[in-house]
Design a protein around this nucleic acid. Structure first.
Length: 287
DNA sequence: CCACAGGACGGCT
DNA sequence: AGCCGTCCTGTG
């Protein structure tokens, strides 16, 4: 068991990070800490004000993995200062979601997770990902309990469509099956994608995968590849953007094109970060 | 029992 | 290019 303590950490709140809709494998424990299964192992994170404690077992250098996963080398104050100047809405949303950070998650796991997210809600997405991990992933032990890592490409490629369906994936079964196959056979090469600089080129590659449309591609690019210039548009984002900036009487009529244009104008190359604050603010408010 | 919520896709114009 | 019906499961 390894341990790392960080003091004076700003822009870090467990709830904001784990419940802003970016991740599916973190659970809150009765003592307020969170336990998460990342691709390299199991972690527990505790927070006492500005002091954060990470404990766990991971493959590789513990500190490096924690810093990388929690994006601890990025100064969120800079983002927040810049975006607060956009308008009063951004300012308010940043006060609300002050502790948000964008996690840097595993690309393969993020692709499958967000294919599952299509037309789906968070509790069910979590349930499906846990079921898939339990069936195909490696078992690991942490504090005397059993956990299951998200399956590797090879492990998940062994799944049949029928098995995937039985795990509750619904109509997404074939999409997961096809995408796993395409990635295993390197029709879409994840290592190649990681070397790409141009967001448009990355999107083009991701869209080749079955079950990956514009929204899912943007989420993958943001949550696994740290692209700050994307703008994933789901019903909530459309709702927020219409309420704040567009004011169309029929929300469904607002086109993605129009939303993207306004996002570019207002938030520039930080559109993805702005979207996280806005989304979290309005979604929590609407609960 | 029904209505509703949530994106990708394919067939249509 | 844009519109719309369909896909599955959980909730109220």
């Amino acid at each position: 068991m390894e341990k790392l303590e960080i003091k004076n950490q700003d822009s870090f709140k467990l709830k904001d990070i784990f419940e802003c809709g970016q991740c599916f494998r973190w659970e809150k424990k009765p003592d307020g800490s969170y336990i998460g299964i990342i691709n390299k192992g199991v972690l527990r994170v505790k927070q006492d004000g500005q002091t954060i404690t990470f404990e766990g077992n991971v493959e590789g250098n513990f500190k490096e993995i924690v810093y990388d996963y929690f994006d601890l080398n990025t100064d969120y104050k800079k983002y927040k200062e810049k975006l607060s100047r956009v308008d009063k809405y951004m300012k308010e949303s940043i006060i609300y979601g002050d502790g948000i950070r964008i996690l840097k998650q595993d690309l393969w796991e993020t692709i499958i997770s967000f294919i599952i997210s299509a037309n789906n809600n968070i509790p069910r997405i979590k349930k499906i990902i846990n079921a898939i991990s339990e069936k195909y992933g490696k078992e690991v032990e942490f504090e005397g309990e059993k956990y299951y890592l998200f399956p590797t490409i090879d492990e998940l490629s062994k799944a049949t469509v029928e098995e995937l369906r039985s795990l509750g994936t619904g109509f997404r079964d074939i999409r997961i099956f096809n995408t796993a196959k395409m990635i295993k056979e390197k029709q879409v090469d994840l290592d190649y994608i990681k070397t790409l600089d141009d967001s448009e080129k990355i999107e083009e590659e991701l869209l080749k995968l079955d079950g990956v449309g514009p929204k899912v591609a943007d989420c993958i690019m943001l949550f696994a590849l740290k692209r700050e210039d994307v703008f994933p548009i789901d019903v909530w984002v459309r709702r927020v953007m219409n309420d704040l900036y567009i004011h169309n009487e029929i929300e469904e009529k607002v086109s993605k094109k129009e939303i993207n244009k306004i996002a570019k104008e207002k938030f520039g190359n930080l559109s993805a970060i702005a979207q996280q604050y806005l989304f979290y603010w309005k979604r929590e408010e609407g609960k």
